[in-house]
């Protein structure tokens, strides 16, 4: 029972601690949990330009701090998700989006999984067919 209480207490504490914006020096205050959820969703969809394999939520780079603040301010002034993304794309290009738009130069990126799947399926199909043929040949040799 005591253990359970301690455990519950720990959970409460940790949720207040980790409920803050990850990595930000000055905690941002949100009017509602929905707003915070929206902020968290946006920062995970946007790339940190400094450490390019991290998103804005995870990165501790100074620029990521600046951009999180910028994003927060834009949310406060009532901009939509698309407007916020547009703001960043105008400055940093499509690269800032973890989900780039389908365009001429991103077509290969988007189609690659499908192409690989089809390619793999073809390899398997040819292999199976060849084995089958070899098996039949071997069997007919036995019969002969």
């Amino acid at each position: 029972m005591k253990k359970l209480l301690v455990w519950l207490l720990f959970c409460c504490l940790s949720s207040t601690v980790f409920g803050q914006v990850q990595g930000s020096k000055e905690p941002l205050v949100f009017a509602s949990p929905e707003q915070q959820a929206r902020f968290n969703r946006l920062t995970t969809e946007l790339r940190c330009l400094v450490c390019q394999n991290q998103n804005l939520a995870d990165s501790d780079a100074p620029l990521a701090h600046d951009l999180r603040k910028e994003l927060y301010d834009m949310m406060q002034s009532g901009l939509s998700d698309d407007q916020i993304k547009q703001f960043l794309v105008e400055r940093y290009g499509d690269f800032v989006l973890y989900r780039p738009p389908v365009k001429g130069n991103t077509l290969l990126l988007w189609l690659a999984p499908a192409l690989l799947l089809v390619g793999g399926a073809l390899v398997v199909w040819f292999n199976v067919r060849q084995r089958k043929r070899l098996l039949i040949e071997a069997r007919s040799d036995e019969e002969a």
């Binding site: 400094v50 620029l63 600046d66 400055r91 940093y92 290009g93």
Partner: peptide, 12 residues
């Protein structure tokens, strides 16, 4: 504060 840097798309 890096504000103009953001407008220029500076990241380093």
């Amino acid at each position: 504060d890096g504000q103009i840097g953001i407008d220029f798309g500076v990241y380093a």
